[in-house]
Write a protein that binds this DNA or RNA. Sequence first.
DNA 1: GATGAATGAGGATTCATTCAT
DNA 2: CATGAATGAATCCTCATTCAT
Lengths: 231, 231, 231, 231
Amino acid sequence: MPLSKFFCNNTNGVAAKRERRKEARPGELLDAALDLFVEKGFAATRVEEVAALAGVSKGTLFLYFQSKEELFKAVVRENISGRFKEWNEEFASFEGSSGEMLAYCMNVWWERVGATKASGITKLLVSEAKNFPDIAAFYQKEVIQPGQALIRRILQRGMDRGEFRAMDLDYAVYSVVAPMIFLILAKHSMGVCVSDSVALDPKQYIASQVNTILHGLSMPPDQAAQGKEKV
Amino acid sequence: MPLSKFFCNNTNGVAAKRERRKEARPGELLDAALDLFVEKGFAATRVEEVAALAGVSKGTLFLYFQSKEELFKAVVRENISGRFKEWNEEFASFEGSSGEMLAYCMNVWWERVGATKASGITKLLVSEAKNFPDIAAFYQKEVIQPGQALIRRILQRGMDRGEFRAMDLDYAVYSVVAPMIFLILAKHSMGVCVSDSVALDPKQYIASQVNTILHGLSMPPDQAAQGKEKV
Amino acid sequence: MPLSKFFCNNTNGVAAKRERRKEARPGELLDAALDLFVEKGFAATRVEEVAALAGVSKGTLFLYFQSKEELFKAVVRENISGRFKEWNEEFASFEGSSGEMLAYCMNVWWERVGATKASGITKLLVSEAKNFPDIAAFYQKEVIQPGQALIRRILQRGMDRGEFRAMDLDYAVYSVVAPMIFLILAKHSMGVCVSDSVALDPKQYIASQVNTILHGLSMPPDQAAQGKEKV
Amino acid sequence: MPLSKFFCNNTNGVAAKRERRKEARPGELLDAALDLFVEKGFAATRVEEVAALAGVSKGTLFLYFQSKEELFKAVVRENISGRFKEWNEEFASFEGSSGEMLAYCMNVWWERVGATKASGITKLLVSEAKNFPDIAAFYQKEVIQPGQALIRRILQRGMDRGEFRAMDLDYAVYSVVAPMIFLILAKHSMGVCVSDSVALDPKQYIASQVNTILHGLSMPPDQAAQGKEKV
DNA sequence: GATGAATGAGGATTCATTCAT
DNA sequence: CATGAATGAATCCTCATTCAT
């Protein structure tokens, strides 16, 4: 969406740079705010820092956002991807096993969300949900539920096609969600969740998780005998 | 140690009540602080609130903790269980399959940590790690690493006994850790992570996760053919 | 530099008033702080009082000085005259007896320092030296030592020219210093040092001191006989 | 006066030590308070420090003094010597020149007041006079005026006997007072008044001052010619 | 629009004073 | 009497917000 700005809005090209800057202001502020809110939390972030990081003065921030709290809400809204429709369509035409579909889904999610700054929103909301219940509810409705619906659809497809075992979707969905949320939090929390955060390669992590989710850690029954002999 | 008071020290009953209170104060304050820090975050919690929740005045808090930050650190230290040694011993003598062991481990963890207030520490540190890097490192060393070591031992046992497949423990460990951390965060974050947090039953959640971790979601190979026919 | 504003910078008159205020603020605050610190001492002065006396709000003070202690240090620094070089030159070309020189020196000192607000710094440092050892040392080095050096030079000149008796300068210097310091403290201490402070005329006081310093209280030897007869 | 305690009050000698301690409490507190008030000023001294230095608890201090301010007043009162009557008598019978009398007076003052802790009271009052006007007035009346009267009497004696020149006593008195006050302040102010406070020997300082006061710094007229030739 | 000086309510912290033991 | 735990008014300082330029 920021890209569209560059191609559509500048009708004359004269004084474009200044115009563009001016129009870009709110976006730069939101970017700066996201970074700082994620890093330090809402309360511990000063609006002056946000303004400074965005390269404007404190007063300018209040030209675009009525208050620090409104800034917070705007940050969340701005970074909530409504890409689920798009993804639903993408997956609707997916050809291949449901296991492949799940793997593809998790990798795509990582590339388009998890690896980007937008992932900080999740950490932010985990931290501040109690202080901003309406925003938390909004996020729940706009992100969590569509996201889980998408995953349920994949799991359901697997069951329908005889690829997945029968399962209670209300709980099974978390076998997919938990690893993804965990990855984001590990990324944003200085290794509070992992033993050595720098060494955690997201791609390998996801591959490992997909493998476990699909096949479990147990030795497959048909190899159990051989497996035992080997060791 | 507080208990000793009741049995040993009070030979005469003089100054008992006040004394007893004095010993109880720090604990009451730490309890109150844990609650509020978890609920609102460090910065958004006022020391006066903590004091009020503990039933004392603002000044009293500073009798026991030099500053708000020291209070925070004390809260973390106080709630960090060094129970891993005890658990290691418990698990060392475990008889039964490694799958059962894993299930037992996760359930025990839930009962003794996840379901208690101490679990809030995890959420707290995820939120404040960047603001308290030394405390985060301390937690990492005292909790995360021993915890993961315990899980690795279980997984290693499973591989040694031919019950689990060969796996890269550096990543496989997160198949166990992620669901547990996720459960805590779901519990403390107003359903930012789940579609309907009130409906999430921890016991069922853990059972579901254990099942996935052990066996995966895929249809077992030997039933795959039948499975397909059925549906 | 503030003057330059009036002649050079204001080509258009925009933002003049506010700008000018900003440059004046620190000085106004330092003035107010000097008054109150001298009157009540550092600890007993509230920053809010200082701000109020300077006609600004509490917060504004902290825009210019990081803390109350920094304000104190700035007050001392601001009021420390580095005028000794200038005076040295002035006195280098002095023509007249060394006695006249001493009298001139003390009178000039009174007019340019003793009678001004800057004299309060001396009282302030006498009161707070133990609480601000570094500032006390700074004052000692910047004011006391150059000041005493100046006086030593005068006394040395008197000895060299045969006008003054041989003397141990290390102690003789205090015959000049003590009366000046005393005058300042008398002025700033509600007559704790004098029997009736309002009645103490500085000019007469200095004249009297100069007379004693130069000639002593004793009857001159050559008049002693007559003196005795007279009375 | 504290000495009298040891000889007079203990009527039985049994449990004397405890009794004595108890009776000594207020005195110990006043001593401690004097030390700390002089060192740090009234406001910057905490009552808890005073109590600790006196070896009692905070609460005990308030058993003897209604408030910190009352403690301050008691400190001043306790240390104000009413020894002027005694001294007046001593000096009334003084035989010798008035110059010797002045020298004797200043030396005696140093030994009995200047060199003792009681001298801190002067520094204390210079610092706090504005905050305790009634105490300052009390001190003025009880100490300053009798002290100056004593000095005036000596100077008057000198004039009467033809030893001292005619002088305006209202100002001449400060030629004696200023050096004494200065000595006290130099002693209590970390060398803010002197170039190297450790090197200032009180006895030499007083000798030097007496010499100047009596004879001045100028070359005596009868030696002036020779003096000039010498150099 | 943009700025940044000014504001003042709000929060952490101190410390004189009280009072139950 | 002596103690020291508890109190809360007082004070320093921060920072979101306003507004003159």
